[in-house]
Design a binder for these strands. Structure first.
Length: 591
DNA sequence: GCCGTTTTCGGCCCGACTGTTTTCAGTCG
């Protein structure tokens, strides 16, 4: 059983316990364990097979370890069955509606017998919700809208989409006086592959808060205003993207940025750590907790203010190095910052070449030369032209005959282009049995062989894993491209034992791709981190089908940074000479 | 349910806003 499935079951259990009204700390304990599992780079099933003690994991104790073992050995969880006998499982879905939490779900269920979103909608239409104690006309209307959004928005927004949607609002706000700083915090700043809503943080000259909030809610693309207080407001844009705005004073800028960048798990861990040091961290600053606050009115008094004007200062007071936002997931970065051992993350300008792209020889929109010129403009030293092999009929791939013609063209272009090396390559399909869709003679003649799955994506996991590993075993295979085949918000990754594939990559000295297309970002952050742990080289490639798409490299680099990669972990940070010698690695080791 | 420089019990992050209240519960991040 996959970690993600275990997380799903534990999450459902936590939701149901919450509706049931269990001890909130017990519920938090489940959520903490889920957070730990989400950050794991290995499978729990594998850890149990290796005889590891799951209670060594943070936030996993005897009970939850027992739940995990039961899930893996039986596929079910008796504790969930018990709770589900008391609380209908469909209620877990209702708490996902905006503005509806466990307490309201409980009330809707107890008083109206509502257990599903459909039933809630019926109850709303029959005006049975408005008359409930604690509900009113406004909350009924809000729930109605939430149901609409829930039905409309299947997935979250891609990071690249969110960038495009937020920029006009940033420009709109940027024109106002009294605005000192403006930054998008939250998962956007952490560069997560998708974002739910956007958290805008503004620093205002005192007295100008109202004007800023006013301009915010009057942005032309605002579809509706969710809330608008003095320092906090929220709107939904016509695109369906929700944007929250917080306005903070100058002296709180760093603390607020830290707090609203999150992740929630990172913030909680920081605060917990602060409490142990007798400190208190909130969005206003870092404070020395006042003594003897066991009685009444210490609530308004945070204690002596130590700082928080800048993020660096807040971290420093806590005894930590500044932690880049991409690492703030509570996956070991706080411990690393304490020891001064944060990774020196790879940067966009470390990238020396792009190793997957397409031209008009298959399904690309531009010529080889146009692609090469753009790569040179981007400052690269080399590129690999990786048109498709013929198995993908719809793209009119490159046959053995066409390959030789293409090599001749590359030679010609290379003759008149200085400052960039074009490697002969191909994105070769992995066929059903794990063989490669190209004649050996051609594979021998290529500088670089990229392999990937494009067909039969619904194979069972063991067959798919065997298929991919068989292909990696081929002595000409260099890079496994978009290993899980996922398309964000559109297609789930196909069933694949990524751990086994990464071990095979280490064994056969095959690199794995982090596809930089913002729709793919495949492998994911957690998987590339695992690759690094196993000593597997990662390649960040754009898979561009036109010159402009070569600019997506930055999304891949950001994802790599989220996976803790340093320049040395990334194959295409190598100089062209070093990369050539990597390409010859197998013949060298045989010699 | 988890955890421990407060160590096997008694804590566990915390402030803003809304709506329905008449002093505050619920939700969110």
């Amino acid at each position: 059983m996959e970690n993600i499935e275990i997380v799903g079951v534990l999450g459902e259990l936590a939701d149901l316990l919450e509706i049931k009204g269990s001890n909130p700390f017990r519920i938090r304990a489940y959520r903490n364990a889920i957070q730990t599992i989400n950050g794991l780079t290995q499978s729990l099933e594998g850890m149990i097979e290796d005889g590891e003690d799951l209670t060594d994991l943070p936030a996993v104790g005897k009970d939850i370890a027992g739940h995990i073992e039961e899930l893996i050995s039986t596929g079910g969880l008796s504790r969930l069955e018990e709770v589900a006998a008391e609380v209908p499982r469909t209620l877990a879905e209702l708490v996902k509606l905006d503005g509806v939490g466990p307490k309201k779900v409980k009330k809707l269920w107890n008083e109206l017998g509502v257990t599903t979103v459909d039933q809630l909608e019926e109850a709303l239409e029959a005006d049975r919700v408005v008359s409930l104690e604690g509900f009113g006309a406004k909350s009924a209307e809000k729930i109605r809208r939430s149901i609409e959004d829930y039905r409309k928005q299947v997935g979250r927004f891609l990071l690249s989409e969110a960038e495009v949607l937020i920029q006009p609002l940033l420009d709109h706000l940027g024109e106002i006086d009294g605005l000192d700083e403006l930054e998008v915090a939250g998962s956007f700043r952490r560069r997560r592959e998708t974002v739910g809503d956007l958290d805008l943080l503004a620093c205002a000259v005192e007295g100008s808060e109202e004007a800023i909030m006013d301009r915010f809610v009057n942005f032309p693309s605002v579809d509706r205003v969710v809330s608008a207080g003095v320092t906090k407001g929220a709107v939904v844009l016509r695109s369906g993207l929700e944007v929250d705005l917080r306005i903070v004073p100058r002296e709180s800028w760093g603390a607020a940025l830290l707090y609203f960048t999150g992740s929630k798990e990172h913030s909680v861990a920081l605060r917990t750590r602060a409490v142990r040091q007798g400190l208190r961290v909130n969005e206003w600053g870092v404070f020395r907790a006042p003594d003897g606050q066991d009685d009444e009115e210490s609530t308004d008094d945070f204690g002596e203010r130590l700082g928080g004007t800048e993020e660096e200062e807040a971290y420093r007071i806590l005894g930590l190095e500044w932690i880049p936002p991409v690492l703030r997931e509570n996956r070991g970065e706080i411990e690393a910052a304490e020891k001064g051992s944060l990774p020196s993350l790879v940067r966009l300008d470390d990238i020396r070449g792009d190793l997957q792209m397409h031209s008009m020889w298959s399904d690309g929109k531009a010529s080889i030369e146009e692609m090469a010129l753009r790569c040179r403009e981007l400052g690269y030293d080399y590129l690999a032209m990786t048109d498709h092999s013929p198995n993908l009929a719809m793209v009119q791939g490159v046959t053995a005959e066409k390959a030789k013609l293409q090599w001749r063209e590359i030679e010609k272009i290379q003759g008149r282009l200085e400052g960039i090396t074009v490697f002969r390559s191909m994105e070769v399909d992995i066929l059903k049995d794990g063989s490669l869709d190209m004649e050996e003679e051609i594979l021998e003649g290529l500088d670089l062989v990229v392999i990937s799955v494009h067909t039969l994506m619904d194979m069972a996991k063991t067959e798919m894993t065997d298929r991919v590993i068989e292909a990696m075993r081929h002595p000409r295979a260099d890079i496994l491209a978009h290993p899980t085949g996922r398309l964000l918000n559109r297609r789930e990754p196909f069933a694949l034992d990524v751990e086994a594939v990464l071990h095979a990559a280490a064994e056969f000295d095959v690199a794995v791709e982090l596809n930089a297309s913002p729709r793919r970002l495949d492998l994911s952050d957690v998987h590339v981190r695992r690759a690094k742990e196993l000593g597997v080289k990662v390649v960040i490639s754009t898979d561009a089908h036109e010159p402009r798409a070569l600019g997506s490299m930055r999304f891949g680099v950001e994802q790599a940074r989220r996976g803790w990669l340093e320049p040395g972990d990334v194959l295409n940070t190598m100089s062209v000479e070093a990369f050539r010698s990597w390409l010859g690695r197998r013949s060298e080791s045989q010699a």
